[in-house]
Write a protein that binds this DNA or RNA. Structure first.
Length: 431
DNA sequence: TCTGGGGTCCTAGGACCC
DNA sequence: TCTGGGGTCCTAGGACCC
């Protein structure tokens, strides 16, 4: 019984989500920008055809935007997450084992489906269903390892003749395709490794597949060795249906405008701490270590640079936002320096324990809020639950005073689309 | 003027222990 | 005295992913 994986990948996902609610934009170039409207993170096929590059800062393409009337959107992650959930639910209704790999990609286990129908047709059915029910175009790649499934998907996207579905289970087809694919297009081979491989004369995926495993392991690492095996059809990376528990949580943002006062910085740090706490409780984890970092912009060469981080252990692992905020502000005071133009700050949580499992040391002093005494701890947890509930329904409905109200540092989002699917007031209307 | 955010894994090297 | 050698743990840095 051999492994068969499929990789389903949404085409130009964020741009496709935006287009879905704007039929008037069907044939127009669309780009979606990163937080702060900084650079391009998604492009519709029309925008790609105009030569707009991934990751380009938007100020560098103002001319193209005007000439070609490119429609620009700020990123609207609430919308994309909701559309993603619909796509994933549909896949789960069609296939028994699904690994949600990213917001717009999923691996499927098709090992036991060949008796039902040919793989090619299976892939076409999936593509058709997502297109018809959700309205999002996808490509499907099918192969005996995840790395080859990724490669099959690459071919499905790159070659229109495939109509978006490639069955790469035949070794002959694998070799023919790999001969055409540059080595740095392989999953797991980035720019750096690509360069080093090129220098060794390894230029195509086929070159890498035919490289001796021992040599690759010695020159690089077990990771690259595994890639070689996967390219040869040996499945080394299993399907992971249940997402692994997170080992760290990071919340950080660049500011919409530079921050120069401690109070503004404190507000932003509090805001990130609150969001990190929400994520932590959603993971049903408690954290023992918290890190705060602040920095100026590495791109502004005319101003003095400063970047620093401070990290500290809580006495007890906690998921209580009040404890986290108290520590975050204390750490911020340690690293704050006046007279800099700050561009970014962030909060990181690590050293996790499952909620309810953490055993405090018998000599540990108890945390002020979460465990001052039992009654206090219970009240505090109730408060967190209540805040999470309210904020799920009404984002930002309840917040800590430290997060601030005016938020002059908040990110820039000048081209935001409405919350079509997650706010009643912004549902699309049919006239 | 204007350059994202959030993750993971591996390795090398130092500290420390026996 | 000897300053070996193996094991473990931690951290920083590098590389990758979307």
């Amino acid at each position: 019984m051999s492994n068969i994986f499929a990789l389903v990948d949404c085409n130009n996902f964020y741009a496709s989500c935006e287009k879905l609610f704007r039929p008037d934009l069907r044939h127009r170039p669309v780009v979606v920008l990163s937080n702060n409207d900084g650079c391009v993170i998604a492009r519709s096929k029309e925008a790609k055809a105009l030569g707009i590059k991934m990751g380009v800062p938007v100020f560098k393409i103002q001319q193209e935007i005007r000439t070609h009337k490119i429609k620009v959107f700020s990123s609207n992650f609430a919308l994309y997450a909701d559309m993603s959930a619909r796509v994933m639910n549909t896949l789960e209704s069609m296939v028994p084992s699904v690994e949600i790999y990213s917001i717009d990609e999923a691996f499927l286990d098709l090992s036991n489906t060949q008796a039902i129908m040919p793989l090619q047709q299976y892939g076409e059915n999936i593509k058709q269903a997502i297109g018809q029910w959700i309205g999002i175009p996808v490509c499907v790649g099918i192969a005996p390892s995840k790395t080859l499934a990724k490669l099959a998907n690459y071919a499905a996207k790159k070659f229109p003749a495939t109509q978006g579905v490639v069955d790469l289970t035949s070794p002959q087809r694998q070799r023919r395709l790999m001969e055409l694919v540059p080595v740095e297009e392989i999953w797991g081979i980035g720019r750096r490794l690509g360069k080093r491989l090129n220098a060794m004369g390894v230029r195509t995926a086929l070159d890498l597949a035919d490289s001796p495993e021992k040599l690759i392991r010695k020159q690089f690492s077990v990771v690259v060795e595994r890639t070689v095996r996967e390219l040869n059809g040996e499945s080394c990376i299993a399907l992971e249906e249940i997402p692994a528990a997170k080992k760290q949580i990071v919340c950080s943002r660049s500011f919409g405008q530079r921050v120069t006062t401690f109070n503004q910085m404190r507000e932003a740090v509090c805001e990130h701490t609150v969001r990190a706490g929400e994520k932590l409780r959603k993971e049903r984890q408690q954290a023992k270590v918290l890190t705060v970092f602040i920095r100026t912009s590495p791109f502004s060469t005319d101003r003095p640079q400063y970047s620093n981080a401070a990290s500290s252990e809580l006495v007890n692992a906690t998921d209580n936002t009040r404890d986290l905020i108290a520590l975050a502000v204390k750490l911020l005071k340690q690293i704050w320096r006046d007279d800099y133009h700050y561009a970014k700050c962030g909060v990181m949580l690590s050293d996790f324990y499952a909620s309810g499992i953490y055993q405090p040391d018998i000599f540990d002093v108890l945390n002020t809020h979460s465990a001052g005494n039992r009654g206090d701890a219970a009240r505090s947890n109730k408060l967190m639950n209540l805040m999470d509930q309210v904020n799920r329904k009404n984002k930002g409905g309840l917040f800590f005073a430290g997060q601030g109200i005016k938020k002059q540092w908040a990110i820039k989002r000048e081209h935001l689309s409405p919350a079509y699917t997650t706010r009643w007031g912004e549902l699309p209307k049919v006239r």
